[in-house]
Simulated assay, not measured.
Amino acid sequence: MSISTRRATRRAILGTVGGAAAALATRARAQTSERTTKIVVGFPAGGGLDAMSRIIADRLRAQTGTAAIVENKPGAAGRIAAEAVVRSEPDGSTLLSAPIVATAFYPFIFKSLPFDPLVDLAPISRFCTFQFALAVNTKLPTANLADFLTYARANKERVNFGSLGAGTPSHFLGVMLNQAAGTEMAHVPYRGSAPAITDLLGGTIQAAFDTTASLMEQYKAGTIRLLAITGANRSPRLPDVPTFAELKLGLGAIEAADFWYGLFATGKTPEPILDKLNGNLRTALADPAVQQLLSALDVGVVADTRAEFARIIKADYDRWGSVIKSTGFTLE
């Protein structure tokens, strides 16, 4: 064999090996993507949404035989996590686990938002619903919601309500109630549940909107009174507390207000991948062990088709958008 022939043969072999190596690397990357599903949570580890997401990730891992992890990206009311998912590859490997605020609040509370939540986040399904309650100080002369509203109208300068922070659902629930009931409760924002409940117990504030999970202990102890809760049905753990809707006091949007956590992919994800993700999630949520673990966190377990979830998102966007815009409230 001549030198030139040997060189040509060597180049051909190296080319073949290089091509094979490149193909193997591409296949390895694809397999890694298929093996690992990353669920991004916009809040610190240890919180309620983090716990729920880990329960779901564990079940998806066991169910599909592929890796599923939770990655926490806290900050900006969950917006940092949402932006990371919007920018991710549209292969279904990176998902956002987020509350209702991602699609119903972000478009209205942020002055500048680099993405459109209704376009750039593809809905997969809700996985849990949760409820807020209107709690009042036990010293108020109000046995029920109708009494409280009458009292609040008659004492406009003396009644206020606490929230979990400006721009949170509890803030706008108070606004929603004021608008519907003709009350003028002043808003007092707090940094979370603990300080709000402390001031409610002490009488600094007369009322507060908070989640049923956060208020449960004080209510069971008889140190606060719960007048009504959001959602279509009473909480199984609070069977004696009525919903706003069932009281039929003509309170409009608050009677239909419902709160949820859901999974999203980046908006560019192909339909077949979204369908597969929806099917995997719904199968996971049907598992009795998963339902038991989630229910223990005082949430309702739900699962939707993608079309159902999209309709819910649009209805919530319309419902909360009008309330938020009426306040003129924004965040930087």
Rank of each mutant, 00 (worst) to 15 (best):
N137C: 03
T183V: 08
L113R: 09
Y190V: 11
F161L: 03
A245N: 10
T66A: 15
G202I: 06
F148N: 04
D147G: 03
M185N: 07
G162T: 10
V175L: 09
T138W: 00
R153G: 07
K276C: 08
E34S: 05
G167P: 00
M185I: 05
L121E: 13
M1K: 01
A51M: 12
Q292K: 15
Y190F: 15
L177G: 10
L121N: 10
T129A: 02
L227W: 09
V323W: 01
A135R: 02
I56T: 10
V136K: 01
E246K: 14
R11Q: 11
A45Y: 00
Y317K: 06
A21D: 06
R126M: 14
S112Q: 13
Y317D: 14
G65P: 05
A221N: 07
A154Q: 12
E157P: 00
V302H: 02
E332A: 12
A245R: 13
G15P: 01
G203T: 13
L238Q: 12
I80D: 12
R282Q: 13
E332G: 06
D318N: 08
K248F: 03
G19F: 06
R153T: 07
V85R: 02
A82T: 07
A8T: 12
G48K: 10
S322A: 15
T223K: 14
A20S: 10
D210Q: 11
I109V: 13
A22K: 01
Q218T: 11
V188N: 07
G162Y: 07
A289F: 11
L49T: 11
A67D: 15
I109L: 08
V188P: 00
T16F: 13
V159L: 08
R282D: 13
R153F: 03
Y106F: 14
G92Y: 04
E332H: 01
A307V: 14
G18N: 00
L294R: 06
Q63F: 08
T64D: 12
G42N: 04
